[in-house]
Design a protein around this nucleic acid. Structure first.
Length: 270
DNA sequence: CCCCCTTTGAAGGCC
DNA sequence: GGCCTTCAAAGGGGG
């Protein structure tokens, strides 16, 4: 139900008239840095989308973000380029690829008192290990409790890049076509299909990803990708280095042969 | 239960 | 600036 509201809001987004410059080829995208290097000028107006959110049913902000601050941010931040590709081909893109469906960008609620009280998918609570018994708590040191507090802090996920958005959209299709279930195999197929896409087709996803990053920046101004470093266990460095010399993937192969990762096709891995 | 696999792209850090 | 590392998603496989 709440999701319905979100989807209808997204429809508004997708049909919001684009500013001039729509249709420009967005690839490769210039990096959108999350730092204070963002220009302060060119502040846009709040789109009807956000007004739709704010009334009559206010959109709950993530728990760790001041709601008013977010709203203000959305009202004043530069999203003028946000809709540049939302008409035409972009408008035909299935809504499954959007910041509404992207867990890290979905507006949920962990705001106390909010009627919906839907957990915010963007902010993923760490898998809570078993609670300590009361008598255990007394044994905990200050450092331990601090560490635990830190661990309980919800995680704000990275925004999805263009390929991830493409994967999310096409995964089900590939699974149906190939009757495969293993993600590793599916991702290999998706990687090949990604390279088989035309520049225009890829551009749709690059543009979507750019919007995702922009909105993510506005929702979580102080967030850095670094925040999530170390929260995932990584395979051993030795193994990783070994895999880097493995020419088995186009990316690795391109890196190995000094090819452009964006444009050059990797012949040996084809 | 949790990490690995596998993909591309973004971003941060180091030299 | 180039290189390296990590993390985004996904779910079966394996220790």
């Amino acid at each position: 139900m709440y999701k319905d509201t979100v989807y209808s809001a997204f429809n508004l987004l997708m049909h919001y008239p684009p500013p001039s410059g729509a249709g420009q080829h967005p690839q490769p995208q210039p990096p959108l840095h999350n730092k204070a290097s963002q220009p302060a000028h060119g502040v846009p107006q709040l789109s009807p989308l956000y007004e739709h959110f704010s009334s009559p049913h206010p959109t709950p902000a993530p728990a760790d973000i001041n709601q008013k601050q977010v709203h203000r941010s959305l009202q004043t931040s530069d999203i003028s380029g946000f809709y540049s590709l939302t008409s035409g081909s972009m408008g035909q893109l299935p809504h499954t690829v959007s910041w509404f469906t992207h867990p890290s960008l979905m507006l949920g609620s962990s705001v106390p008192g909010h009627p919906a009280a839907i957990p915010h998918p963007a902010i993923v609570p760490h898998s809570g290990k078993q609670e300590l018994q009361p008598y255990d708590r007394n044994l905990k040191t200050q450092a331990e409790s601090k560490a635990e507090k830190e661990a309980k802090k919800p995680t704000i996920k990275k925004p999805l890049n263009a390929f991830m958005l493409y994967m999310k959209e096409m995964r089900a299709k590939v699974i149906a076509e190939c009757t495969l279930k293993e993600s590793a195999a599916i991702n290999q197929i998706l990687g090949r299909r990604w390279h088989a896409l035309s520049r225009e087709e890829q551009a749709k996803y690059y543009e979507l990803a750019r919007k995702e990053r922009q909105l993510h920046m506005q929702l979580y101004p102080g967030w850095s990708a670094r925040d999530n470093y170390g929260k995932k266990k990584r395979r051993s460095r030795e193994k990783h280095q070994e895999s880097n010399t493995d020419p088995g993937s186009p990316k690795k192969c391109r890196a190995r042969f000094g090819l452009n990762q964006q444009t050059d096709w990797c012949g040996p891995c084809r």
